[in-house]
Amino acid sequence: MASGGGEVKLFGMWASPAVRRVEWALKMKGIEYEYIEEDLSNKSASLLAYNPINKQVPVLLHNGKPIAESLVIIEYIDEVWKHNPILPEDPYERTKARFWSTYSEGKCRDAVGKGYFTEGEEKENAIKYLEETVRVLDEELKGKKFFGGENLGFSDLVLGWMAFWLPVAEEVAFFEVLDSKKFPWFASWTDNFLEVPVIKENLPPRDKTVEFFENYRRQRLGASKCIKTHA
Rank of each mutant, 00 (worst) to 15 (best):
D179Q: 13
E139W: 03
F183L: 12
E124D: 13
D138N: 13
V158E: 03
K182M: 07
L166P: 01
E131D: 13
A126Q: 01
K123L: 08
D138E: 01
P184G: 08
R135P: 01
V196F: 04
W161Q: 04
F164R: 06
F186H: 07
S188N: 14
K142N: 13
T133N: 02
A173Y: 02
E131G: 07
D156C: 02
I127F: 02
F146C: 00
E132V: 02
L194Q: 10
E139Q: 14
L137N: 12
V168M: 09
E124A: 14
N192D: 00
W161S: 03
A173S: 09
A169F: 03
K142Q: 14
L159D: 00
F193A: 07
F164H: 07
D138H: 10
K142E: 14
A173K: 09
D138G: 08
E170T: 04
L166F: 03
V136L: 14
A173I: 06
G149T: 10
F154N: 07
E140L: 05
E131N: 11
G153K: 14
L157G: 00
P184N: 10
L152G: 00
P197W: 05
E132T: 11
L157H: 06
G143N: 08
V196Q: 11
W185T: 03
K142Y: 03
V134K: 07
V158L: 06
T133Y: 00
Y129A: 14
K128Y: 00
A187I: 05
V168Q: 11
M162A: 15
D191K: 15
E131V: 00
L137P: 03
L130C: 11
V134L: 02
K142T: 09
A169C: 11
K181G: 02
E140D: 07
A169G: 10
K123P: 06
N192A: 07
N192P: 02
E139P: 00
Y129E: 15
S180Q: 12
S180L: 03
N192F: 07
L137D: 12
V168C: 09
F193M: 10
V172W: 01
L194D: 14
